[in-house]
Design a protein around this nucleic acid. Structure first.
Lengths: 180, 180
DNA sequence: CTTCGACATTCCAACGTCGACATGTCAAAG
DNA sequence: CTTTGACATGTCGACGTTGGAATGTCGAAG
């Protein structure tokens, strides 16, 4: 349901075509709210029909540039300021944890170790992003920094937890599996 | 896609009717993989047709008790041991963070503070669960403990992050004010 | 005997997401 | 001049999730 709001948010910063929007989704919002082409173009049409967006320019190849309307801004603001985020957490990773006793302790420890490594490598990636990105203090970069820091802390927590959990199950076996 | 596996997992522990299964979902898996009635009953039929489950008893009110078959167990094990969890993270909470500059600093700080409080209260709840639950060392309670600990660490991290983020914005605001 | 709450199943319409397919234009490189 | 790759939009069917409605049985309390 918040795809529309993600799009309104991006278009509030600057007008874009569907194609541009897709690229902006891929670079900045992939980790937070992924979107496919069909979804974006479909929603673009709906939002325009609803008066929250309008076509402000047409270019080559049938390009249509969309901009947010005052109604769109109002809707966006309303969403941000007056509604609570939907907190429906669904974690396949955690679901598996509930059934870990169906595996041998060795397999279970291997699962948790893999999780730990995945988290560690994600964390390393984010750490690199943090250093590479120009924090030139546009308004987006402040928010981006907050989100990045969240990812950093989350992946750190996940790694620690997974290592701890592996130890709970495997005891000495955890160290063995972790090494390999 | 993993609803089927969640159901297989629960039925691997003990046979249940759809109604029972619903209650087990609500008590143990709500926070990890919520499911609705229509979903559970629908999937029950599909899994039985596919030979992963079978009806082992019929009771009063049309009650049908389902048990996992060897094929079902094989599928469950395969899922657990030989596939990687789908990690599609979608966070409306974080999406909002990207657009926080559309609010006044005061409103943004309010948003983050609310998040911090929500995390803190969740953490308190989980802490209580931790103490109330009988950790009688069934096989489920080991896994349950791991999952609970994850929730504990996650909510702690979220609270810290939200407080930190609120400070970042408040601090920026102070700096701006100082400049002018 | 009636009522009420827990038990119990089944069906359906609507929505969001996903992946694939179809169609076509324009600019630059070979 | 042809090919290639980026640009650009649009449609489709399948799937999983959601919420609601319909239907009915059984046991216990009043």
């Amino acid at each position: 349901m918040s795809l529309r709001h993600a799009m309104l948010g991006l278009l509030a910063e600057r007008p874009s075509s569907g194609y541009d929007l897709m690229k902006r989704f891929e670079t900045s919002l992939t980790n937070v709210w992924p979107a496919t082409q069909s979804q974006v173009y479909g929603e673009l049409g709906k939002l325009a029909k609803a008066g929250l967006l309008e076509v402000v320019a047409e270019g080559p190849r049938g390009r249509k540039e969309y901009a947010i309307t005052p109604e769109g801004r109002a809707e966006l603001r309303h969403w941000l300021a007056e509604t609570r985020p939907d907190r429906s957490r669904r974690s396949e990773m955690l679901l598996r944890v509930f059934f870990l006793d169906l595996l041998t302790p060795l397999e279970a420890v291997a699962y948790l170790s893999t999780e730990a490594e995945r988290a560690a490598s994600l964390r390393a990636d984010l750490e690199q992003v943090k250093e590479q990105v120009q924090w030139d203090d546009g308004p987006l970069s402040v928010n981006g920094r907050l989100a990045l820091e969240y990812g950093l802390r989350l992946s750190a927590m996940q790694e620690e937890w997974a290592r701890w959990a592996a130890e709970q199950i495997g005891g000495t076996q955890a160290a063995e599996a972790g090494k390999s």
